[in-house]
């Protein structure tokens, strides 16, 4: 059993209108030190497969194929 935590966010050079709106709201609320806000998705996968290299490869594949759109998104993940 392993738990995989995946974060998908827009690539840095892609405009994130949601993040921009939240940043604008935070500015208005008085949080002036915040430079950027980027909004993404968090995906949790529980798998019966064992951890290690193979699982890493599989998760990469899942992200490339389905969970993230490589044209606009990037991802990171951790395996527990």
């Amino acid at each position: 059993m392993a738990k995989v935590k995946i974060f998908v966010t827009l690539k840095d050079d892609v405009l994130d209108p949601q993040g921009k709106t939240v940043k604008f709201a935070l500015d208005k609320m008085g949080y002036r030190d915040i430079d950027t806000v980027r909004i993404g998705k968090y995906i949790e996968i529980e798998t019966r497969g064992s951890g290690g290299k193979e699982l890493k490869k599989e998760i990469d594949e899942i992200c490339d194929k389905l969970l993230a759109n490589p044209n606009i998104e990037k991802y990171t993940f951790s395996i527990e």
Binding site: V14, L15, P17, T21, N71
Partner: peptide, 11 residues
Amino acid sequence: LPGAMLTNKTL
């Protein structure tokens, strides 16, 4: 087709 879709600028 090339490219991708983002959320509308108005959200």
